[in-house]
C-alpha cells in the first residue's frame, strides 16, 4: 500500500494510492475530491486536465500519481483567494471566454504556469501555449482575448503567483 503525499493548493494532503496505473488526475479528483480538474481524453491531447506541478503545467491525465510524491500542486480550486478571483479567472469572464466550462480549468492553469514563469510572454509564446488545448465551443477567438487580457492584468509581475 502506497501513501501519496503532496502539497495541494498550499495544504499538505495524503491519500492511499490504489495499486495500478493511478493518474494524478484520478488522485486529485477521486482521492482528494478536487473535481475541478477535468479529464477529456485521457491522453494528454485536450489539455482539460492541466494542473501545475512544481511550477510546471502538466497534463494530469498522463502523469502517474506516484510521480507527484512530495510535489507541490496547484489546481483550479487553488487560484481564487478568499472569494477574490485570480486575474486570469477575471480575464476569462470579462472576455466571455467561457461556454461549457470543461476546457476552462486546464486553460486557466496552463496560463497560470506560463505567467508565473514569464509574466510578459510575447504573442508567439502565448499562442504556442493555447495551441496545446482543445475547446469545442468557442472557436478560440475569445480565448485569445482572455489570454491577452490576462497578460495585461498580470502587468509584468509575478504578484499573483503562489509562493
Amino acid at each position: 500500500m502506497q501513501i501519496l503525499e503532496m502539497v495541494v493548493n498550499g495544504a499538505k494532503r495524503a491519500m492511499i494510492l490504489e495499486e495500478g496505473r493511478v493518474m494524478l488526475s484520478d488522485a486529485l479528483r477521486d482521492g482528494l475530491g478536487l473535481t475541478g480538474t477535468k479529464v477529456g481524453c485521457g491522453a494528454g491531447q485536450c489539455g482539460s486536465c492541466v494542473v501545475v506541478m512544481n511550477g510546471e503545467a502538466v497534463t494530469s491525465c498522463t502523469t502517474l500519481a506516484s510521480k507527484a510524491q512530495g510535489a507541490e500542486i496547484v489546481t483550479i480550486e487553488g487560484l481564487a483567494r478568499g472569494g477574490e478571483l485570480h486575474p486570469i479567472q477575471e480575464a476569462f469572464i470579462e472576455a466571455n471566454a467561457i461556454q461549457c466550462g470543461f476546457c476552462t480549468p486546464g486553460l486557466v492553469m496552463a496560463l497560470y504556469a506560463l505567467f508565473c514563469k514569464n509574466p510578459a510572454p510575447d504573442d508567439v509564446i502565448l499562442k504556442k501555449e493555447l495551441n496545446k488545448h482543445l475547446c469545442r465551443c468557442t472557436g478560440y477567438e475569445v480565448i485569445w482575448d482572455a489570454a491577452v487580457l490576462a497578460r495585461e492584468k498580470m502587468n509584468g509581475t509575478r504578484k499573483a503567483c503562489s509562493e
Partner: peptide, 22 residues
C-alpha cells in the same frame, strides 16, 4: 449580461456527471 455560471466555471465548481460520487 455576464453569464450566471461564469464565476463557477473559472473556479472549477460546476458539477459534471463524472464529478459525482455517491
Amino acid at each position: 449580461i455576464r453569464r450566471v455560471d461564469a464565476v463557477a466555471k473559472v473556479t472549477g465548481e460546476p458539477i459534471f456527471v463524472a464529478d459525482i460520487t455517491l
